[in-house]
Design a protein around this nucleic acid. Structure first.
Lengths: 195, 195
DNA sequence: TACAGCTGTACGTGATAACGTACGGACGTA
DNA sequence: TACGTCCGTACGTTATCACGTACAGCTGTA
């Protein structure tokens, strides 16, 4: 059982490749030269008649000046999703720490959260994992106060207005060492899943 | 010519697959059942002895509870990068509109920007493209004031504290219809490149 | 020691991905 | 009309992907 509908989840990059190629105003032979993949092969891939290996798929992507991961990611769609100020889900937290999650993201590509830390408090309470999925990255922006970021053993002091980018799949947390309340925005992008 | 080193850019997901599989405490046969790909095939892929088709690569990713794009994206690394409040690059803008770009992103996965709109002003000046690369997505959070988001013809009014997610590869801009200054944070994630 | 149970890998076969070549069709020019 | 040139696609061959089976190795148990 387990994976029942995997054939349904089949790859259909064909139309995408064709659209991108035509957007770049390239013929099949042009792209063939740029990518090192034969024109007939490109034609078959575009029409979905064959499933290319990662090798050639990667070269096709390179010919389109993309990374393969970027090419494949295009086949995930979305729309406009608005969350009103009053509708925020409370994310929880611990003593002196609260945060909420404005956008419940369709297509899950990034998530925005705002954390408020009382003096001496730190992130990492329930509902707030100490590290995220492999490959994810976090951007944080200090709105007010001073916080200390702990990433994989190292510490970094951040003042109001400072921002930081780091790999979120490393263990990390924020701490407020000051005497005033601190607030920060965090964007976690590009995660994946475990069982 | 054009693509000289495409063999260098070859895919080496093998070790990654093995690491993920072992992290999930699965044997080759376990993953074989979950993914629908034979155990010997998995072994060959993990050791880099063969390049799977997108079909089976996709099923392998599914067996690891990932999208293929996510699996492939793992082979891009990064570190911690801090930008101090005073070091912000000014992004430019037009009359009544200014924005700056806190983090110059290594590995370019998402970009954070803060826009300040005077009454009647709108985004879209020089240095601020009206739309982003295919596949990118934008999260915006209104910090103060009221703004109107125009996406692909439609308009959406956003008040202080509201947030929105939309596909940034559609033409869009923000406008400040109010009598007070408005500020908003925008996160653009996951873009790609053109020639 | 011997046997069951698991791990990951080498082998041989059938399916198919990827190639080079060759063809029908659309366009511009003589 | 006839020709050269470009487009995308059908053909036939070779390389290799992906499978099922069978094997060597390690671990625990009788």
């Amino acid at each position: 059982m387990a994976t029942l509908d995997q054939m349904e989840v089949a790859i259909h990059v064909g139309p995408r490749v064709r659209a991108l190629r035509e957007a770049m105003d390239l013929s099949l032979r042009d792209l063939a030269e740029r990518s090192g993949v034969s024109a007939p092969m490109l034609s078959q891939v575009e029409r979905g008649e064959t499933s290319p290996t990662l090798q050639v798929a990667s070269r096709i992507a390179a010919g389109l000046e993309l990374r393969l991961s970027q090419l494949l990611r295009l086949d995930e769609q979305g729309v406009v999703s608005i969350v009103r100020a009053g509708e925020r889900r409370r994310g929880g937290g611990t003593a002196g720490h609260s945060f909420d999650l404005p956008p419940p993201l369709p297509g899950q590509r990034a998530e925005l959260s705002r954390h408020v830390l009382a003096p001496g408090a730190q992130t990492g309470g329930k509902g707030d994992p100490p590290m995220h999925e492999p490959g994810s990255r976090e951007i944080a922006l200090v709105e007010s106060g001073t916080v200390v970021l702990h990433v994989d053993g190292a510490t970094h002091e951040l003042n109001e207005g400072d921002s930081v980018v780091f790999d979120a799949d490393l263990p990390h947390h924020f701490e407020n060492p000051g005497r005033d309340e601190a607030a920060l925005l965090a964007v976690v992008s590009a995660g994946l899943r475990r069982s």
